[in-house]
């Protein structure tokens, strides 16, 4: 069996990113769209860590560290927005949220 190389890790990362993008395009539940966004962020993390490992440079891992922090803040704010929106509209389906007026 061959050892996993950088291209293998990048392939996994690309597959995860594509699946996340598919979720954002196809699904219509706000919460699931948000989970797909998280998936895309994580696939970028995998690519960065793989690059850092195979180039012997730690900067990629530092960047992932910051991405995880920012993603946590983003999740908190986004979910608060979803809750506020649900209070007004009683729905999380994007089709029912077509008008910008509250």
């Amino acid at each position: 069996m061959i050892e996993p190389t950088l291209s293998h890790y990048l392939l996994v990362s690309g597959a995860l990113f594509s699946i996340g993008l598919l979720g954002v395009i196809v699904r219509r539940n706000l919460l699931i769209i948000y989970m797909s966004l998280e998936l895309m962020l994580n696939s970028a993390n995998v690519a960065l860590v793989a690059m850092s490992r195979f180039n012997g440079n730690l900067d990629g891992q530092v960047m992932v560290f910051f991405i995880i922090t920012v993603a946590a803040a983003e999740v908190a704010v986004g979910l608060a927005l979803i809750v506020a929106l649900y209070r007004k509209r009683q729905t999380t389906e994007v089709e029912d949220l077509a008008s910008m007026k509250l």
Binding site: H8, V12, A15, L16, I19, G20, L22, G23, V26, R27, I32, M35, S36, L39
Partner: peptide
């Protein structure tokens, strides 16, 4: 791990 990640990601979405 790669198969598990991709498979469960698929199950998240579809």
């Amino acid at each position: 791990f790669a198969a598990l990640a991709v498979l469960s990601a698929l199950l998240v979405v579809v």
